[in-house]
């Protein structure tokens, strides 16, 4: 059926924002920041893209604005977590609320109407394709950067033991903040793809939890860019499959829930779990302890 080609292309379209967000999540976690504000970063990216395209008539400027918006949001997380000692999860939750409230509020301020923006100039089919390709190129590039460049080495070290990074004469705060900046840019592009690539409007709640699916993809991808992109692609295919199976009577909610259910399964480690970076989510001045340690260590002694 020609719908197979349609399925593949729909999968790619559905996967692309997830790939961007998952790469953003990976780079943050490798540097030791558990970025739950990805959802917010996608949201502000999608909104900024449409707002700027609306104001200037240029979707390219819109894309640019999305990058800046994503950077602003994620860098706030990085700065709050490294300079002000705010707990990463708390800060991430705050930023998500901030993004949701700010964009809903912005819709009224910029477009004078709540709920959704009017149609604006979008990136078009060419732009959409370019971003799809860019997402997968970014995965390879990021993998190479992480594995082979000095910055990549510092990021990896920072996610494992920031104190060692400091002893080596590198400021781990800077490393973590730059990681959030890179992540913000990626997530911003992901957001712009949602509003200006796939569609030509912004509407409240359009990110629909993709930032959280991305976190699941990071775990599935075992904290590597290529793995995360692969997982994001699989999740994209799942959501494309939803349109096919819906006609067969499978509830769409079940299909939508699959990535989240899969993420829960990943947390059990039954499907095989790699070790998370030791200092993932750990503030800079604390010695990292493995997340799994608590559960393992507290095994009641029965001898055997």
């Amino acid at each position: 059926m020609d719908s197979f080609a349609g399925f593949v292309s729909l999968s790619l379209v559905k996967a692309t924002p997830l790939v961007f967000a998952a790469l953003a999540g990976t780079i943050c976690e490798r540097a030791g920041i558990l970025n739950i504000a990805l959802e917010g970063a996608l949201t502000v990216g999608a909104f900024a893209a449409v707002a700027v395209s609306f104001a200037t008539g240029s979707p390219v400027l819109g894309l640019f604005a999305a990058v800046l918006a994503g950077i602003a949001l994620c860098a706030l997380l990085g700065i709050a977590a490294t300079r002000f000692g705010v707990d990463q999860i708390v800060a991430g939750t705050g930023l998500n609320l901030l993004a949701a409230g700010g964009t809903a509020f912005g819709l009224v301020v910029v477009f004078g109407q709540p709920g959704a923006s009017p149609e604006v100039h979008a990136l078009g089919a060419g732009g959409e394709k370019a971003l799809i390709v860019a997402a997968f190129v970014a995965a390879f590039v990021l993998q190479a950067v992480l594995d082979r460049t000095p910055w990549g080495l510092r990021v990896r070290a920072c996610g494992e033991n920031p104190r060692a990074v400091r002893s080596a004469g590198v400021d781990p705060r800077r490393v973590r903040v730059t990681a959030t900046v890179v992540a913000g840019a990626l997530a911003g592009i992901g957001g712009a793809f949602l509003s200006l690539g796939e569609l030509d409007i912004y509407s409240d709640g359009m990110t629909a939890g993709r930032g959280f699916i991305a976190l699941a993809a990071v775990i599935f991808g075992r904290w590597t860019p290529l793995g995360a992109a692969g997982a994001a692609l699989a999740f994209g295919a799942l959501s494309a499959l939803q349109f096919v199976l819906q006609r067969a009577g499978v509830p769409s909610e079940l299909m939508q829930a699959l990535p989240y259910l899969a993420a829960l399964a990943a947390l059990t480690g039954i499907v095989g779990r790699a070790r998370a970076p030791a200092a993932d989510g750990v503030p800079l001045d604390e010695r990292p302890a493995h997340i799994g340690r608590m559960a393992k260590g507290s095994v009641e002694n029965r001898g055997d």
Partner: peptide, 9 residues
């Protein structure tokens, strides 16, 4: 005294 090294590298 307590080494500052990155164990997994």
């Amino acid at each position: 005294q307590h080494f500052e090294l990155v164990g997994r590298l």
